[in-house]
Design a protein around this nucleic acid. Sequence first.
DNA 1: ATTGATAATCTACCACTGCTAGATTATATA
DNA 2: TATATAATCTAGCAGTGGTAGATTATCAAT
Lengths: 202, 202
Amino acid sequence: MLPNGVGTFDLGITERKRRERAEREILIVDTARRIAEEEGWAAVTIRRLAQDIEYSQPVIYSHFASRDAIVGAVAIEGFGELAAALRGAAHSASSPKNALAAVAETFLDVAFDRPAIYEAMFVLPSGLRFAKSDTPPQLRDTFDALAAVITPFCQDVEVATETFWASLHGLAELERHGRIRPAFRAQRLARIVQMVCAQAPK
Amino acid sequence: MLPNGVGTFDLGITERKRRERAEREILIVDTARRIAEEEGWAAVTIRRLAQDIEYSQPVIYSHFASRDAIVGAVAIEGFGELAAALRGAAHSASSPKNALAAVAETFLDVAFDRPAIYEAMFVLPSGLRFAKSDTPPQLRDTFDALAAVITPFCQDVEVATETFWASLHGLAELERHGRIRPAFRAQRLARIVQMVCAQAPK
DNA sequence: ATTGATAATCTACCACTGCTAGATTATATA
DNA sequence: TATATAATCTAGCAGTGGTAGATTATCAAT
């Protein structure tokens, strides 16, 4: 037994290992995200990930239970960044209507500029659960950022936010799938903003 | 050479074969749809399809170039049915506002009652191209059915229809993915209808 | 320094996928 | 009945997500 009663000298070693493991986990997520952005999610296979991080496949599974869980990790990152971008857009606006328009435009910008992350957040199976006790705060933050700009134009904030969010997501999805004309994106956004603003508050 | 100069007696045989081939193609699409509805699209594999229609896998590929093409065939069927359902809903309504509400509700009903077909139409890769020369009429029909009920409430019908469509699709997708509360579907729909109706025509 | 236990990692595999080359069987004509 | 052709099948490729079990490195205790 040791003088301090702990039974070991290597708390520092254990700590270093814990840290290295955490770094490797971040490396996996970053690598998945990079491949997805450059070549699409279909290119993000476990073998490819293992090759790129220079470990064998089972190591990936010692960090994530499934491929979906890796998508989920990228999605959470994406929600954090989306929430920040939306808050930034709202903050720079000079009126409630401008804030609404800026947030809507920013949402679509993210969807089209970073389609892989957007897919992870909204389209692919990711194992993420919303409005549950284990829901990551980044998801709530995104919802709240949308709610903040819609509040001046509605009575029921939750319902209005869900509806606003759905409209934006629908615009992103239909355009991503080539169902609606890219050239008229701004006009569709203007119509949404116009309709929301026509609603009386209280 | 034969008296009629055709060089063959079996035009009837050729015709029968052509017919049998067409029937088998329909069987493939119907089978794919059935499996997708009962067990999800992941269960629709080429091997499974081949087994169910009692032919080998290459026979499937003699009808469809890829699995995606089969999804596309189911999607086209779905668009035909969706267009009909939307037109029916609009027809039974007593006012432009009621028609709008009925169409919106019908759209979501289809999305939730037949999720596999909805996925084929809007989510999965299907090889379908919109607003192109080779676009099947069923797709245009669906768009037109939406346009018909939105026309009384807008100036630019195309933009308004795209926006309306996107809102409905977004509501369907977010609810399907558990992002928004199923219990408030009617309230979200009511808000959409309310917003559209607040717009001036002219 | 050498042991024995433990943790970390890898090799090799499973069952499955979409898809296809080439052999085989059935069919229609001469 | 022989031959060309069309229809169909068997068997395989290269890839997937995921994992069991052998192997290696690392540790504490002698």
